[in-house]
Computed example of a mutant assay.
Amino acid sequence: MRLTDIVRLARTALGTEKGRDAGRGLTDRAADAAGRVVGPRHSGKVDSARRAAHSYLDKQGPQDPGRVRS
């Protein structure tokens, strides 16, 4: 499987509510892990990145899976 195929499948998954929910869960777990590593000193940056990721996922919706956004 080529990288373009993987990207296309990921974009298709983000077009579904179930895929966006899975993405939110992954970003939450990644942010929690990062928070444990960097500690309270950079917790604001970790929370900001989590909010940005959630915002991006919220904007994803049904789209043409063959179209690659720039």
Score class of each variant (00 low, 15 high):
residue 11 R to Q: 11
residue 14 L to S: 08
residue 53 A to Y: 03
residue 47 D to M: 08
residue 29 R to T: 10
residue 55 S to V: 00
residue 40 P to Y: 06
residue 39 G to T: 05
residue 59 K to T: 09
residue 16 T to M: 14
residue 64 D to M: 00
residue 67 R to C: 00
residue 49 A to I: 09
residue 56 Y to M: 04
residue 1 M to Q: 14
residue 2 R to P: 15
residue 15 G to P: 05
residue 40 P to D: 14
residue 51 R to V: 01
residue 65 P to W: 05
residue 16 T to C: 14
residue 69 R to A: 07
residue 40 P to N: 12
residue 2 R to E: 15
residue 53 A to F: 03
residue 52 A to T: 04
residue 52 A to M: 05
residue 46 V to P: 07
residue 13 A to E: 14
residue 4 T to W: 06
residue 12 T to W: 15
residue 24 R to E: 04
residue 29 R to W: 04
residue 13 A to D: 12
residue 1 M to A: 15
residue 22 A to G: 10
residue 66 G to Y: 02
residue 19 G to I: 09
residue 47 D to Q: 12
residue 25 G to V: 05
residue 13 A to G: 09
residue 38 V to R: 04
residue 34 A to L: 15
residue 23 G to D: 02
residue 6 I to C: 12
residue 69 R to S: 04
residue 45 K to Y: 03
residue 42 H to E: 07
residue 17 E to L: 13
residue 15 G to E: 00
residue 57 L to I: 10
residue 1 M to L: 15
residue 41 R to Q: 07
residue 63 Q to F: 01
residue 52 A to V: 02
residue 36 R to L: 13
residue 57 L to E: 05
residue 45 K to Q: 11
residue 23 G to A: 15
residue 30 A to F: 03
residue 35 G to F: 01
residue 69 R to F: 02
residue 56 Y to Q: 02
residue 16 T to G: 13
residue 30 A to R: 03
residue 20 R to I: 12
residue 17 E to P: 11
residue 9 L to A: 15
residue 41 R to C: 02
residue 30 A to D: 01
residue 6 I to D: 10
residue 27 T to W: 01
residue 63 Q to M: 03
residue 16 T to A: 13
residue 33 A to S: 14
residue 35 G to A: 09
residue 40 P to I: 12
residue 56 Y to C: 05
residue 26 L to W: 05
residue 22 A to N: 07
residue 50 R to N: 04
residue 65 P to K: 03
residue 37 V to G: 05
residue 23 G to E: 06
residue 33 A to N: 09
residue 68 V to W: 00
residue 23 G to R: 03
residue 42 H to D: 07
residue 8 R to I: 01
residue 30 A to C: 08
residue 7 V to D: 11
residue 68 V to L: 06
residue 46 V to D: 03
residue 31 A to P: 00
residue 50 R to Q: 06
residue 57 L to D: 02
residue 8 R to T: 06
residue 18 K to Y: 06
residue 37 V to C: 09
residue 36 R to A: 14
residue 20 R to A: 10
residue 27 T to Y: 02
residue 42 H to V: 01
residue 69 R to H: 00
residue 47 D to G: 14
residue 3 L to N: 13
residue 45 K to V: 10
residue 56 Y to N: 01
residue 41 R to E: 06
residue 23 G to W: 03
residue 19 G to F: 06
residue 20 R to F: 07
residue 9 L to R: 14
residue 56 Y to G: 03
residue 48 S to P: 01
residue 67 R to F: 07
residue 15 G to L: 10
residue 52 A to Q: 08
residue 27 T to S: 13
residue 33 A to E: 09
residue 22 A to E: 08
residue 41 R to I: 10
residue 5 D to L: 08
residue 63 Q to K: 05
residue 69 R to K: 00
residue 55 S to Q: 09
residue 19 G to M: 09
residue 19 G to R: 06
residue 24 R to A: 08
residue 59 K to L: 08
residue 51 R to P: 00
residue 49 A to L: 12
residue 7 V to S: 11
residue 28 D to C: 06
residue 49 A to S: 13
residue 69 R to W: 01
